[in-house]
Design a binder for these strands. Structure first.
Length: 510
RNA sequence: GGCCCGUUCGUCUAGUCAGGUCAGGACGCAAGAUUUUCAUUCUUGUAACAGGGGUUCAAAUCCCCUACGGGCUACCA
């Protein structure tokens, strides 16, 4: 297995949008593939026709693309092991189910839903420890183990519905190896005879998964921990199909938990948790309900990836910010944790902030301009870039920019009352008129010369810095927030500054 | 109920395999410093080995039990 080219797959079922847990699984697969110079496959597991939801396959691909996760083979890319949609591979599976029957490892079962229900009730009433269709109960059901040959053949000839179940051996210790948890032992007697092939002619996950992974030459299966209980079943399948020696290595990832501590995160959690569970906004085609996405919430894809990768993995160093390339370099399955983790919205914001301040003013300005355009503000890129440079440290998202910088584009309409009460004195208007006049005379209206002028004036008149500056800020910004006032003045320009001071004096009065 | 997996600050985690530094970092929170304001930044602080038994000179680390959490238990994946 070691010399072969590494091939991994991400195999979602299109039953709904991918949530952040699914993205993380895809991400780990991707990192593992790239790290080992391997191939990444996207396989769509649509064996349950009833649960398929329109649009989700497209959604899955768009989401992964947004995250920067690329596939080498898949439904869109094609490849030598296609088709990559299980519904299109339907005809492939039956022969393997038949092979298992021939070898005595599987059997036909003709039980109806009602009969299965009755079986369950009997077991419940009897207080059985082991429940399900198992080595004990299969003897009292309608299947090719209990029925005679002719009867079975006749039922099949009559087109009676049947499923094919695996025949789990008795009292066999099954040892399976998981890359993150090491050896897991299971007594086969506690397992049940899972359906491998459904009456609609489709395989179940278990069969399709094993067959496809084998046919697609998958070397490493990296999937969620919810699959760990079926690993012994899959191991048995590999063995019975004669593929034991080519069985892939398995790694089961710890689950993402709900922050309120009840169970694993699920698609149904939507926005209930106070943060999105989906990468991209999703509109439920049935209900029309809209669920928010990280992209629409203003997260950068690099930040999103960085947030997710740390939910269950860490590099063992103190580095927290990673580009995709750095992640590929640093990623190993050995450093994947064993316990489930909760998403922390606060830390997520911090990550985005880190990426935001790391971006160039030009890039941020381009994004901010889209928002400004919607507000019907047309202004030079150079100006927006300068604004962004002054405020980006104060924001987590580009969508925070407006709140942080609107005074650069529109003069304040009203003035923060508390501050007016506290700092706007009787003589304030006179002081501001003095300053206004002095600013008028500055030929080089730069931050430094404004600062010098104002400070000299304050010193000369023996005034308090705070008193004057806050009054000025009120006129220019409208409130007590914002970056350095001299920088604001330089950007606004002489004319605008003087106008705003004028208006401030008139509006606040005195 | 049964089977399987897990458990270190509020959260993400390092440290566990090869037992021995005040249990380290980050987010958050708090305080202080800086500042014309808010924020940033900087400094400091806050706070954890689930519990109990062993083994050992020595246990977060190895073993056992208990508790708690999670997953699975469909002709769903």
């Amino acid at each position: 297995m070691k010399d072969k080219q590494v091939r991994v797959r991400f195999a979602p079922s299109p039953t709904g949008p991918l949530h952040i847990g699914g993205i993380r699984t895809a991400l780990y697969n991707y990192l593992f593939a790239r790290k080992n110079k391997g191939v990444m496959v996207l396989r769509i597991e649509d064996t349950d026709q009833n649960r398929s939801m329109p649009g989700t396959e497209e959604y899955i691909m768009k989401s992964l693309e947004w995250c920067g996760i690329r596939f080498d083979e898949g439904v869109r890319e094609g490849g030598p092991y296609g088709p990559y949609r299980q519904s299109e591979r339907k005809s492939l599976y039956e022969q393997y189910a038949m092979k298992l029957i021939e070898k005595g490892h599987a059997y036909y079962a003709f039980d109806t839903a009602e009969e299965l229900e009755q079986m369950r009730k009997r077991q419940e009433a009897g207080g059985f420890k082991l429940t399900g269709y198992n080595q004990q109960s299969r003897l009292e059901m309608k299947n090719s183990l209990t029925l005679d040959k002719e009867d079975v053949q006749q039922r099949i000839n009559n087109c009676e519905k049947y499923v094919i179940r695996i025949r789990i051996p008795e009292n066999e210790e099954i040892k399976v190896f998981d890359e993150v948890r090491n050896w897991v032992n299971v007594d086969s007697s506690t397992m049940d005879d899972k359906v491998l092939f459904k009456s609609d002619g489709m395989p179940t996950y278990h069969l399709a998964n094993v067959v496809d992974d084998h046919m697609m030459k998958i070397t490493n299966v990296i999937r969620g921990e919810e699959w760990l209980p079926s690993l012994p079943l899959h191991a048995l399948l590999y063995k019975y199909l004669g593929w034991e020696n080519e069985m892939p290595d398995f790694a089961h990832l710890p689950l993402l938990l709900k922050p309120d501590g009840k169970g694993k995160l699920s698609k149904r959690d939507g926005d209930r948790l106070g943060f999105p569970v989906f990468p991209l906004q999703w509109k439920d085609p049935k209900t029309g309900e809209i669920y928010s996405g990280y992209r629409e919430s203003g997260y950068f894809p690099e930040a999103f990836v960085n947030i997710l990768v740390f939910l269950g993995w860490n590099p063992g160093t103190e580095q927290e910010l990673f580009t995709m390339e750095e992640l590929i370099d640093a990623f190993t399955l050995e450093r994947v944790g064993k316990s489930g983790s909760r998403f922390d919205p606060e830390k997520a914001k911090w990550f985005n902030h880190q990426y935001l301040i790391g971006k160039s003013n030009a890039e941020l300005a381009t994004q901010y301009e889209k928002i400004l355009k919607k507000k019907k503000i047309e202004i030079s890129v150079a100006y927006v870039e300068k604004v962004v440079g002054l405020i980006k440290e104060r924001a987590n998202f580009v969508s925070d920019f407006w709140e942080q910088s609107k005074f650069f584009f529109i003069a304040p309409e009203d003035y923060e009352e508390k501050l007016v009460k506290k700092k706007w004195k009787e003589n304030t208007p006179d002081i501001l008129r003095d300053i206004s006049a002095m600013l008028m005379d500055i030929s080089d209206f730069s931050r430094d010369s404004i600062e010098k002028t104002v400070k000299d004036y304050i010193e000369e008149k023996e005034l308090g810095m705070g008193q004057v500056m806050i009054a000025l800020r009120l006129c220019l910004v409208g409130s007590g927030m914002g970056p350095d006032l001299f920088a604001i003045m330089e950007l606004l320009g002489k004319k605008e500054v003087i106008q705003r001071v004028q208006r401030g004096i008139e509006n606040i009065g005195g």
